[in-house]
Design a protein around this nucleic acid. Structure first.
Lengths: 189, 189
DNA sequence: CTGTAACTGGACCGATTGGTCTAGTGCCGT
DNA sequence: ACGGCACTAGACCAATCGGTCCAGTTACAG
């Protein structure tokens, strides 16, 4: 059940990773501190040492970490590609594989960690900032492939929305097929 | 805060509507029975009389009711339209208005009610069935406007994913603009 | 070795959770 | 008038929630 959540990693990182995994599957309110600390093999004291505000601090850290992973995945997919569509295809296949590995239960890690529970501005602004990061990254890629500014922006937003919708539909269907088909939806004539 | 949640409506319907509203904003696990019963002005006994399995029964009823509302909204938008794009524009503007009225905090009612908490098959199958209903409805509309079968299906799935992504992005940004722009994303060349 | 600060371990807390149960209430048909 | 049933009302429960607190341990600086 656990990957590298065992001792080699420092406690703080184990907490972040466990939180990211659990929030992603069950949502912020669906995860109790007990499950979380159990999976991270950490006591309560450590949590509140590293994250003084407890669960909410951890959720933001987890969402941020998951976002960085996503940006890494995007970079790894788009840099070797020779067109936006090609990179997108690689990315979607990677995401589909990760989805299958998760037991076909994981949605967007950021939505799961931040859109539940507290409806406060901090959570929403963090989600906004993270999503904007994904979109502008995709926008830069599109521009790098020669797309004009406004079209690059629109392509990037389309990519983002397809991704979110794809995650939702894949989860409901219990199948990663939708994710693999995303590139076709993106570049239909 | 409440619309027609007061006496005129029978208790069971008040429970369903309150549940739909609350789950949509806070997710399944983010809503306690106390908030729920309070908003519906119903005691606990009534809940477990109408929904013997308690919260989970109610969530499924709420998601189903919200889905019917959505199908009504789609029908009201597409039937008077003379093209798929025109109907989609009407629909998106209606959804944007509803989003604004909600305080810019409500996402997809089905995801909110069913994707949190229990990861059991019943919830996932229900979500799958409901989403499939939305997609086939859109597919029929597209076919009615003369689209060939396979394109109609793809258009319908694209519509669904854009909608989900649009709700997510609108929520993060605290703005309904994305929803209003959805038709442009749908029919870009 | 000693001092100090970073960190761990877990007992403990009040609040809230979803759920059960029983006593009552009101509206039927007869 | 009355029996019966659909429904309401809310006290009550064990379990779990997120969070606090402090005694212990470790690691590193001098």
């Amino acid at each position: 059940m656990s990957r590298s959540d065992t001792p080699p990693l420092p406690t703080k990182d184990r907490l972040i990773r466990s939180a990211a995994h659990l929030f992603r599957r069950h949502g912020y309110n669906g995860v109790g501190l007990n499950d979380l600390l159990d999976q991270a093999s950490a006591p309560k004291g450590s949590l509140y040492h590293h994250f003084p505000n407890g669960k909410s601090d951890l959720a933001i850290a987890a969402a941020t970490w998951a976002s960085d992973e996503m940006l890494r995945l995007m970079a790894a997919s788009f840099s070797p590609a020779d067109s936006f569509e090609a990179g997108l295809t690689t990315l979607c296949h990677k995401l589909a594989k990760l989805f299958d590995l998760s037991g076909m239960a994981d949605g967007c890690p950021v939505s799961g960690a931040l859109f539940d529970g507290p409806n406060n501005d901090l959570f929403r602004n963090t989600a906004d900032h993270i999503f904007e990061g994904w979109i502008t990254e995709a926008e830069h890629v599109a521009r790098g492939f020669g797309a004009p500014p406004d079209q690059a922006r629109r392509d990037a937003e389309l990519f983002f929305m397809l991704l979110q919708g794809g995650w939702t539909l894949a989860r409901a269907r219990g199948s990663s097929d939708v994710l693999r088909e995303l590139p076709n939806q993106f570049s239909r004539s």
